[in-house]
Design a binder for these strands. Structure first.
Length: 806
RNA sequence: GCGCACGUGGCGCAACUGGCAGACGCGCCGGACUUAGAAUCCGGUGGGAGACCUUGCAGGUUCAAAUCCUGUCGUGCGCACCA
């Protein structure tokens, strides 16, 4: 088959008959199938796109044939750093390069033959989209969920912009790998922490990979503990946060983060110089070093003391950079006997180690960090674990010196970016009115075209006079605009809400439509977004729900991550390794169907693995082989009675239907294709028979085309026509298994003696256990092994095996 | 360092809740058709002469373990002083 012409033939036909457009009339049967949209940083689709979209489309087509009205949109996550960096290198404007990339990619996506509903396409860099991204910002601002503050932020010196916590990986910029430094800047944040608890508890009911849920749980990092107030000799007080209030009698020192204001305030004259020097050296230490747990701990005694509220003991106050100012209270109590870090610190600086917890069963080796029994803890002696924690927390609460406290590691989401290619933040600064949101009617705040975007650490927009100068929307005075743009993750935090109502000019979406179309039923995309996009999108959904726009809690009911296709050498594809496999080369040689089929057959979908040229050949061979047998069936003659051969083929057919249906539901594409191959093999076997039932054979051929349709859509559509059937194969119902065809009159049992397989036995279904016993024991292969021995146990696993223990 | 996955023929990968390990394919071997090759079709293919042995390694639970438990080694991913 000439795949090239066949593919373009059907793509045109699908386009013309609007085969892939969602029909709103059938909204009650909707199935919202979504793949993460494309980022147009390169000009072409890479293998990752194919691997994400191809199999996911097969799933969508399967759902469609099952009778769902499938909505599968596609668009472009078009703002972002790579386009801008590319522009800096080549002097080509990001808008121009992005638009060109989108054009090429869109063309390629169409050639893939996926059933994307292009009528709902969105591009986040277009005014009619980012207008609503700005609207989202204003809504969050209105609700107090967007705020501006000065804070130490992550700064990438190479990208010349700030980064969200989630975009820092191992202390380096997620994009370019440059070590991130801390900078004090006034920036916009989204108050995602307001939703920490719900973002955590909502995970339980989601059909998501456990690993992804776990990553989000860890990222949110809930810990339940106690805040305890210490009073200094000076009369100042500070609180520490601990998850181990049961160890409070073991405190031998307390530590403040070097940034803590009390460090300077309380430093004694003798220690002042040392303290100042320590603060300075900490400030210089870069973030990666400071956060490394492997690094030896350092600290300095500030020359002042505080009082332990439970026993009145005077303990020294230290400053040490292993305590983070940004978490909890920025201060901790040092309990060397029951915390590894404190133990190491105390040993280094000669601080006392006081055991207050003992191992319940056996010797207590310090540091002992597990739950245990309180000792040396006055009235709490003998209490264990949670009981002890509760009792001591209650005691502290009564004293007015503490309270139960829940802390999260999750920080608010920093959304300002000192870059050009993004949605401008719709805020105006007025000398009289202060921070003023741009009125909704004035949206969008347009991103100007003529801007110097060479990075120098300042926002490019700040250098654009006609953009910056405006009038205050409240008082009309001369005012300036916010020069930063929004993190591109803001754009992608709500795009799935836009698709169902993509051309709405009055609102980001019509809640009535969106509440019917969402949540997304199946979301497919890379695992790298676990703690970024997938968390942010959940936050947006919950915030919009609380504003009354949405009536659901979670955007993505069910989520699947595709694996990664590696180079043929088993390494990640990269230019430097020279192991990049370009889809185009193969698609032009074999066609889209073969390419997609190989991606489904050659890998476990969620695992991925190394590319193989031989593998793709096998996919091509399979389609050729399929075509030949379909033509054989079409030409078949004969009126043989329905007999044993027919029964066998019918079994394979229905078995394939049953298992393919199950496998597709599980995204188990490789095994589904294997069942198709078995079916084709069985068709060949039947074709070899002298006598054939032609009508039955043709019926089998029809089913084969239907079964194959989601996997090789163009090929199947063509063969459906060749077999003389009516367009379109995708309007046909997917075959349903006839269970009666799977009923056999007898089943093969493996017969074991003492758990070792000795023989196999055909046993008629419905045979009673007593009879089976007699049958097995009298079998020629078994009799000599059991004769003269006592049968201690006789185990029957229905339809599988018999185990005789002698 | 901590957490989570994974480890199966020469290769890619299968094996639903513990129940015949190696489905399906690649490769390889053989046969048919061809002057010959390619393509195609058919058959074989974990190891061992054998009883038997085989799911990284060592133990354990069980009538029965790739699957469950403990330890260990290796690979990948995530978090990295979060008190």
């Amino acid at each position: 088959m000439d795949m090239k012409s066949v593919e373009s033939k059907w793509q045109q036909r699908w386009e013309k008959t609007k085969e892939n457009c969602f029909n709103k009339k059938n909204i009650d049967k909707k199935f919202y199938m979504l793949e993460m949209f494309s980022y147009p940083s390169g000009a072409k689709l890479h293998i990752g796109h194919w691997y994400n979209y191809g199999p996911a489309d097969s799933y969508a087509r399967f759902k469609r044939m099952q009778g769902y009205e499938v909505f599968q949109p596609m668009g472009f996550d078009a703002f972002g750093l790579p386009a801008e960096n590319y522009a800096i290198k080549t002097k080509i404007h990001p808008k121009d390069s992005t638009e060109k990339n989108i054009e090429t990619m869109e063309h390629q996506l169409r050639a893939m033959g996926a059933m994307f509903d292009w009528s709902a396409e969105i591009k986040t860099c277009e005014e009619d989209y980012y207008k609503w991204t700005q609207w989202m910002f204003l809504k969050l601002f209105e609700k107090g969920l967007a705020y501006r503050k000065e804070a130490p932020v992550n700064w990438c010196p190479s990208c010349n912009t700030v980064l969200a916590n989630e975009q820092v990986q191992e202390g380096c910029c997620e994009r370019c790998g440059t070590p991130v430094i801390k900078k004090d800047l006034t920036q916009w944040f989204f108050k995602i922490t307001d939703y920490a608890e719900e973002l955590l508890s909502g995970l339980d009911k989601l059909d998501w990979p456990e690993k992804t849920k776990l990553m989000q749980r860890n990222w949110i990092g809930k810990s339940v503990g106690c805040e305890i107030e210490f009073t200094c000799e000076s009369g100042d007080t500070f609180k520490v946060f601990t998850t181990r209030p049961d160890t409070v009698f073991g405190v031998s020192y307390v530590v403040l983060a070097p940034e803590h204001p009390l460090v300077r305030k309380l430093a004694s004259d003798e220690q002042r110089a040392a303290v100042e020097a320590y603060i300075e050296s900490t400030a210089k230490t870069d973030e990666i070093d400071r956060l490394s747990s492997a690094r030896e701990k350092t600290g300095v005694f500030i020359g002042h003391y505080a009082v332990n509220p439970v026993n009145g003991e005077k303990v020294p106050i230290w400053a040490a950079d292993y305590v983070l100012y940004s978490y909890g209270t920025g201060a901790v109590m040092g309990v060397p006997a029951h915390d590894e870090r404190d133990f190491a610190f105390a040993n280094k600086y000669g601080l006392p180690v006081k055991k207050v917890i003992e191992n319940r069963n056996g010797e207590t080796v310090l540091p002992f960090c597990e739950d245990g029994i309180c000792v040396n803890s006055l009235q709490f002696d003998g209490k264990f674990g949670d009981d002890a924690r509760t009792a001591i927390t209650n005691h502290l609460t009564k004293l007015g010196k503490g309270a139960r406290k829940v802390n999260y590691r999750l920080r608010d989401w920093l959304v300002s970016r000192q870059r050009y290619w993004g949605a401008p933040i719709p805020i105006v600064y007025c000398p009289h009115c202060g921070t003023v949101p741009v009125p909704y009617k004035d949206l969008p705040v347009k991103l100007p075209y003529n801007v110097q975007f060479e990075p120098d650490g300042k926002s490019p927009l700040a250098k654009c006079e006609e953009f910056m100068h405006t009038k205050c929307p409240v008082c009309g005075a001369d005012a300036v605009r916010e020069a930063d743009t929004l993190d591109t993750f803001v754009c992608s935090s709500w795009y799935f809400l836009r698709y169902p109502d993509a051309h709405n000019a009055k609102a980001p979406f019509d809640p009535e439509i969106v509440n019917k179309m969402l949540p997304v039923d199946k979301y497919v995309g890379g695992a790298e977004h676990a703690c970024m996009h997938l968390l942010y999108a959940r936050f947006f959904t919950k915030a919009l729900r609380d504003m009354g726009y949405l009536n659901f809690d979670e955007p993505f009911t069910s989520l699947v991550h595709q694996g990664v296709i590696l180079g043929p050498d088993g390494n990640r594809m990269s230019k430097s390794k020279g192991n990049i496999v370009s889809p185009d080369d193969y698609v032009s040689e074999y066609g889209s169907d073969v390419f997609r089929l190989y991606l489904m057959f050659g890998f476990s979908y969620t695992e991925g693995g190394p590319w193989s040229d031989d593998g793709i050949k096998s996919a091509a061979k399979f389609l050729d082989r399929t075509e030949r047998i379909l033509l054989r069936a079409k030409e078949a003659q004969g009126t043989a009675a329905h007999g044993e051969e027919e029964r066998k083929l019918n079994f394979v057919r229905n078995n394939a239907i049953k298992l393919i249906t199950r496998d597709l539901e599980n995204f188990s594409f490789n095994t589904a294709v294997a069942r198709l191959m078995e079916y084709v093999n069985a068709m060949y076997k039947y074709d070899g028979c002298e006598e054939k039932d032609a009508a039955f054979f043709k019926e089998c051929a029809n089913d084969l085309v239907l079964l194959l349709a989601p996997f090789a859509p163009h090929f199947a559509e063509e063969m459906w026509e060749v077999l003389g059937k009516k367009y379109s194969v995708f309007d046909q119902p997917y075959p349903v298994c006839d269970e009666s065809a799977l009923v056999q009159e007898s089943t093969e049992y493996a017969v074991q003696v003492n758990s070792k397989i000795k023989t196999k036995l055909m046993i008629p279904n419905g045979t009673a256990e007593e009879e089976m016993r007699a049958l097995a024991l009298s079998d020629d292969a078994i009799r000599p092994l059991v004769e003269g021995k006592t049968v201690k146990k006789f185990i029957v696993v229905p339809n599988r095996l018999i185990n005789i223990i002698v």
